[in-house]
């Protein structure tokens, strides 16, 4: 009896400790959400209160009346463009790396891993020159090109692990059944790795969605800004309103959360496979 009692106490102690910690960690997020619904007078009130008196929607109205949708669309276009290119290339590449054998294959895989670890900042100056020379400064192409530098190695590496998890024998069975390489790829392999391709696409989308560095250097006009740049610039303005900034923060986070909710069951193993099991 006392053993069971001890275990019960232990479980409750752990529950309290864990939840206190989780609350502390999520406090900034709670505060962000609450602040976005506070009126300008309430937000600067002393002492501040956790929850707004009334649900004030003025921040969101002001945000959506401004450049928000323009920036939002820019972010969507750049991230989607990057994902499409990177997934097409990455799928072909991963299939090649995992299903054939030819000299230099291992070296290629290692090279991908290395570029995956290389810092974006190092690419900044040369990319700038290339973008100027290609005369694509301040266009979507500039940002897609720049985002590919991190999205491509990441996707290729992740896709490679998905392709590796599809047993080779299923493909061999299809070949014995008379399927050509082409048919094998489209009818047998692709349907099986489709969940992996979708997850990889979502991860790559989020990475590109999150880019601040490249977007801040390679866009020069207000109408080409992406969301992160737009928000960061607004935050530095002297008359920036914190309520609107918090509303913007919430609005940028929501798409990411929706995508992650979509992935949630797969999230833990994927982050491990892609990032840690290198």
């Amino acid at each position: 009896m006392s053993r069971m009692r001890r275990r019960l106490i232990r479980t409750w102690a752990l529950t309290v400790a864990a939840w206190l910690f989780v609350l502390a960690v999520s406090f900034p997020l709670i505060w962000m959400l609450a602040s976005s619904f506070k009126s300008p007078t309430e937000i600067t009130a002393v002492p501040p209160r956790l929850l707004p008196d009334a649900l004030y929607l003025g921040n969101y109205e002001a945000l959506f009346a401004g450049d928000f949708w323009r920036w939002f669309m820019n972010s969507i276009i750049v991230a989607s463009g990057t994902v499409v290119i990177v997934i097409v290339l990455g799928t072909l590449g991963a299939y090649s790396l995992t299903r054939f054998s030819y000299p230099g294959q291992k070296a290629t895989s290692t090279a991908i891993l290395f570029t995956y670890l290389f810092p974006s900042v190092l690419m900044l100056v040369p990319l700038f020159l290339i973008i100027v020379e290609l005369r694509i400064m301040n266009t979507y192409w500039a940002l897609i090109l720049a985002d590919m530098t991190f999205a491509m190695p990441f996707s290729l590496w992740l896709l490679r692990s998905y392709f590796l998890s599809v047993p080779l024998q299923v493909e061999e069975a299809a070949m014995v059944d008379g399927a050509s390489r082409f048919a094998c790829f489209f009818q047998i392999v692709l349907p099986q790795v489709m969940p992996g391709i979708i997850s990889t696409g979502i991860f790559a989308f989020i990475l590109a969605w999150d880019d601040y560095l490249f977007a801040s250097v390679f866009t020069t006009t207000a109408e080409m800004k992406t969301l992160p740049v737009g928000i960061a610039r607004y935050a530095n303005e002297l008359n920036a309103e914190w309520g609107i900034l918090m509303a913007a923060s919430v609005s940028v986070t929501v798409p990411v959360l929706v995508l992650f909710a979509f992935l949630q069951r797969r999230l833990l193993p994927d982050l491990n496979a892609g990032a840690v099991k290198a």
């Binding site: 290339l89 090649s96 290389f118 491509m152």
Partner: peptide, 28 residues
């Protein structure tokens, strides 16, 4: 023959790598 086909599939990726990663890196 299959090895050559396999290597050819990698070609677009390698080209993209050289264009957006290896090239700029060397240039930098």
């Amino acid at each position: 023959r299959t090895a050559v086909v396999g290597a050819l599939l990698l070609l677009p990726v390698v080209a993209a790598f050289i264009l957006v990663i290896a090239g700029p890196l060397a240039r930098g």
